[in-house]
């Protein structure tokens, strides 16, 4: 053991992702959507995964539950989940269709998605879809499952839940559908909830309600939440820990205060600068990150962010790949802070 553990007193993480690689084998070439992600989710905490669209955060989340569609597949790394009985399993090593992973899906780890409009079965009643989930994982009679489902619909703030139980998804508004989705995800009291941009498709007031709801339920059920978002406002509101992703890699991670107060990676800094703040006067336009996300098939050599980085150091950043290393209060992958390896 050459690697020193940063804080030895910390409780063991609920989920530890190490060196995860999920690649898509398309006709045009290999798209490395997730290319070496390291993350930990602590029990009972909220981790926000922040990044632009296309940075691989959704694919990373789906890799955890092993629901990445073909032609994508996990080609490396591990996803260690510590179950309630204390045993650890590597989700990355499981077969995506095995009974073992199905046992974990929906029961231990549940997920809600970005599109409440299309994420529910279109021609099945809401109640039936929730009852179905309960019966998959709990030994219950149908009547009990129905009562549980109605209770859950009530808990997520759906008015007249007994009537809504019989409703079809197309009869509900977007916000109501997302509430129903949450009810369905939480009906088996998971230990980790993965929320993949749960508020992106909703209007602003509904967004806040849904975020509050997730935060309340997190406290109530004592579960951990992994919230995937590109919205810094969401991060500021709910996050305890933050991981910033760029081109399939985590470039910086730490607790939310450290990241907001003392961002180290140029990408994190640029992200924070591009948000307007109350009380701060900007001269002229808001600063934006220069350039565009590179074509998914043409990954830059060395540091993935170097093509857009203001602190680009030729001969270093385009030659070596920075590793995630603890610098002060956060982990960062950047040669501004990390030592440059002697020979590549």
């Amino acid at each position: 053991m050459t690697q020193p553990t940063p804080i030895p007193t910390e409780p063991a993480p609920l989920l530890r992702i190490a060196g995860l690689k999920t690649h898509f084998f398309t006709d045009d070439g290999v798209v490395k959507a997730v290319d070496g992600v390291d993350l930990t989710v602590e029990p009972g905490k909220t981790l926000c995964v922040l990044g632009e669209s296309g940075c691989g955060k959704s694919i990373m989340a789906r890799s955890i539950l092993r629901i990445v569609d073909r032609p994508g597949r996990i080609v490396g790394g591990s996803i260690t989940y510590r179950a309630a009985d204390g045993r650890s399993v590597d989700l990355a090593a499981m077969s995506p269709t095995s009974a073992a992973i199905r046992q974990i899906r929906g029961s231990d780890i549940a997920m809600i998605f970005q599109e409440p409009m299309t994420s529910l079965g279109p021609i099945q009643k809401i109640g039936k879809q929730i009852v179905e989930t309960i019966l998959l994982h709990r030994r219950m009679s149908k009547a009990e499952a129905k009562e549980t489902a109605i209770e859950m619909l009530n808990r997520v703030g759906i008015p007249r839940p007994r009537e809504r139980f019989e409703a079809y998804p197309f009869e509900l508004s977007g916000g109501m559908r997302q509430r129903a989705m949450i009810a369905m995800a939480l009906c088996c009291q998971p230990r980790l909830l993965i929320a993949d941009e749960p508020t992106t498709a909703l209007d602003v007031t509904t967004q806040a309600q849904i975020l509050d709801l997730i935060a309340d339920l997190k406290e109530e059920f004592g579960m951990a939440v992994m919230l995937i978002t590109h919205d810094l406002g969401v991060v500021a509101e709910v996050a305890e820990d933050v991981a910033v992703m760029y081109l399939g890699k985590v470039v910086e991670k730490g607790d939310v205060y450290s990241i907001f107060e003392e961002p180290k990676h140029p990408y994190t800094r640029a992200l924070l600068e591009s948000v307007p703040r109350l009380g701060v006067r900007h001269a002229g336009r808001l600063p934006a990150i220069e350039g565009m996300v590179p074509h998914p098939l043409v990954r830059p050599t060395g540091c993935p962010f170097r093509t857009r980085c203001r602190a680009f150091m030729p001969g270093i950043c385009d030659v070596h790949q920075p590793e995630l290393q603890r610098q002060g209060r956060t982990d960062v992958a950047c040669f501004l802070h990390n030592p440059v390896p002697a020979h590549g």
């Binding site: 074509h295 043409v298 830059p300 093509t307």
Partner: peptide, 21 residues
């Protein structure tokens, strides 16, 4: 995607942002 494999490879080698044809 409107680029062929070779174009991509060339673009990657020459280290410039490839402009899709």
């Amino acid at each position: 995607m409107t680029m062929t494999q070779t174009e991509l490879a060339n673009a990657a080698e020459s280290n410039i942002d490839p402009t899709p044809i």
